[in-house]
């Protein structure tokens, strides 16, 4: 199709940006195109999370039981409060970003500077919070055993109904067990750091304490995890072959391994977006201070980086829903 420029415009005005399609500048439109494609990328991730979850719908970990920490509240069960706080921080930094864009329209340099600074601080708080969430998730809380089929067996005190930590109830056995290194075995097969307790020590502690029972991954009709009776538990514990403490890409003490994989991948990818958003915001912030946009005559750059920043907030709204609420 031939593009017919307006007769009143000469060629340099058309291709030099004088003729804006949709009344949006080139940079802004490309930012929107990037956002649309990035939104589809995140869609792919979140939908594949949904796929794995629907596929394992009767054994998926319950988010409320996984994310229960709040800073400075040790041992208190506080599901969701911290992520809710993170959500508010991100929405608020989104607001300061719009205010910066708005101040830019009024060519108010002092206000743009101030609001950009607040936005950067909000973003930094968010990334820090996410790092803290990751730390808790990786470190784990109670520990669990894993069966040959990869199922997780967690321990519950039958009397109180509270979770029992393997560290606390396992009984020590004097045995020599050192980390197997690739250089002293056959065929370069090594292993990572050993857990603090062995399977036998957990088993011994479990058999000694009559109040302990096993909780499996299966979800019952009313949305709780299945807790076995003491007799069933004694049979079940023989299937365990491995001690799991915390979560990583291969093992996950909270339940299905895919849950940990998607958690690391999606929140990691989002956190990386936030981090790069903070870096870009800092660059723009210094440009504002140096007066670059004052000289240029408009603050459109702030508007463009603002679009990216809001998009990051928008994605978090969905990640929050699908990882923590649903």
């Amino acid at each position: 199709m031939e593009v017919a420029p307006n007769a009143s415009l000469d060629e340099s005005q058309v291709w030099g940006g004088g003729n804006k399609p949709f009344n949006a500048s080139y940079g802004k439109m490309m930012m929107w195109f990037f956002i649309v494609s990035d939104a589809l990328t995140f869609t792919g991730f979140l939908v594949s999370y949904g796929f794995s979850r629907f596929k394992n719908i009767n054994s998926w970990p319950i988010a409320d039981e996984v994310f229960t920490h709040f800073p400075f509240l040790h041992g208190i069960d506080a599901p969701m409060y911290y992520v809710a706080l993170m959500t508010f921080v991100l929405i608020f930094s989104s607001v300061t970003m719009v205010l910066a864009v708005d101040a830019g329209h009024h060519m108010n340099k002092a206000k743009v500077t101030f609001y950009m600074l607040l936005t950067i601080i909000g973003g930094a708080i968010f990334v820090g919070s996410q790092a803290w969430e990751w730390k808790n998730f990786i470190k784990g809380e109670y520990g669990a055993l894993e069966t040959r089929g990869g199922q997780i067996l967690q321990f519950v005190n039958a009397e109180t109904g509270k979770r029992a930590a393997i560290q606390e109830f396992s009984l020590g056995i004097d045995s020599e067990r050192s980390t197997h290194q690739s250089y002293n075995g056959i065929w370069y097969k090594g292993e990572t750091t050993l857990p603090n307790v062995s399977v036998d020590e957990v088993k011994k502690g479990f058999l000694a304490d009559q109040s302990l029972v096993i909780r499996t991954e299966q979800i019952t009709e009313n949305g709780q995890k299945t807790v076995l009776s003491r007799d069933e538990s004694i049979v079940k514990i023989d299937e365990a072959i491995d001690v799991i403490e915390g979560a990583n890409l291969i093992h996950n003490e909270y339940g299905n391994r895919l849950f940990a994989d998607f958690f690391f991948f999606i929140t990691g990818f989002h956190g990386f977006h936030v981090l790069s958003g903070v870096v870009i915001n800092i660059i723009i912030f210094f440009n504002v201070i140096l007066g670059t946009y004052e000289r240029r005559g408009h603050y459109e750059m702030v508007e463009k980086v603002g679009l990216y920043w809001h998009f990051v907030d928008l994605v978090w709204v969905f990640v929050f829903t699908f990882f923590y609420l649903v």
Binding site: W32, I35, V36, L40, T43, V47, G50, F51, K55
Partner: peptide
């Protein structure tokens, strides 16, 4: 140009993958 691709593609992808996952379950 921004909203329509997302509004069409995202529910479509979600629908086919979740339906398939439900079947596999």
């Amino acid at each position: 140009a921004i909203v329509l691709p997302l509004v069409i593609l995202i529910p479509y992808l979600a629908f086919i993958l979740l339906l398939e996952a439900d079947y596999i379950f």
